[in-house]
Design a protein around this nucleic acid. Sequence first.
DNA 1: AGTCCACAGGAAGGGCAGGCGA
DNA 2: TCGCCTGCCCTTCCTGTGGACT
Length: 414
Amino acid sequence: MWVEAEALASQNIFSQYIEKPSIFRDKKTLTSTFIPDRIPHREHEINQLSVILAPILRGYRANNVFLYGTCGTGKTICTRFVVSQLMAACEKGGISAKSIYVNCKMKKVADTEYRLIAQLVREFGGEVPDTGLPTDVLYRMFFDKVDGSSQNIILVLDEIDALLRKVGDEFLYNFTRINDDLKKSCINVIGITNDLSIRDAMDMRVKSSLSEEEMIFKPYNAMQLKDILKGRANGGFVEGAVDDFVLNKCAAIAAQEHGDARRALDLLRVAGEIAERNGELKVGEEHVDVAEAKIDMDRITETMRAQPKHSQAVMFSIIKIHDSMDERGKEKWTDSRLLTGDVFAAYEQICRQNNMKCLTQRRLSDLIGELDMLGIINANVISKGRYGRTREISIAVSEAILGKVRSFLAGRFE
DNA sequence: AGTCCACAGGAAGGGCAGGCGA
DNA sequence: TCGCCTGCCCTTCCTGTGGACT
């Protein structure tokens, strides 16, 4: 016993990890935030965007541009690539320019008008409290900072649809008007969105001045995805660690899900991590299968953990009804379907058992909508004729994932 | 054709916490 | 300290909805 302990003590617990050969060469290459030297199958879009932004190199303002396309179609990476090239060219040519990238979906950072402007002021070194200032004061601070910098500003607003849905398009109108008053600087806005329909929701004034140029990014097909993965795998894995059939599988899965390159990369990277943990020197198809399940499970369980208590209670009510429907052959409930009224009744019971103040049915309705948006449940509005209009709710995740969520929530509410 | 149900979902506003300037 | 500003979470009130029922 002592001998073993001594042996262990003489050896660092991580030495095994350090000594073991890794199948990764440079794992960063396999992340969606990495910007490679070449972006395959987006040459046309890159060219188009650089033509739009080129006037900046002559000190002029470029047209504002809106980029549309579903998740993982290369909008962000192409923008980052073009902007970084533009910045390098500006530096070389002695042109004063600054790029700012903001993800409008980032919680507590830029998900409201106030936070977005505050974040922009901070980009210029200004100090702004998290709350408390009137918005017009904030706009004035931003204006002064921008004009004082005497620069051509390239403002990239990623996932702008999230903010538009939340606060409306008034803030975009302010951005478009700000250029009229700036004397020494100008702002070029690049808006990126996953949602094409957001265009219709925008005010005409905003639409005409902000969408001076529009670009649509089409989803990748399986062959293109495989090409992208191949390029990344060459840099990310050691030679011989990934075979073509593994790339094919990752590409095929991602192609089925709207040609999402981000998803393909995640699958490949996580499959590599699983293979390495198993002490293997090659990624196999079975690792991709495990990776697929793991990515889904991690996403759902992490999302559920991050939800407020009442949202968790609503989810637990849904799971409880779902379970009892299975047990009792769907007899107990008013209908064979899981409806809002049933969820509210179960939720009230859980609140009572846990000494929680019950939220109203109106609020519960919103929470159900949020869980639907997160992809954890499906909630469709249906009409049951004279028995009213309600939501039909079903669980949208696999039994394995549901098991994890169930045990986490049971620990909180039972 | 009109009635009715059980909600959906929009609008308005309350209450709270946190921050600022006078 | 006080009034005013913000975001956030929530309630209350209200209108709208669509199909079964009468």
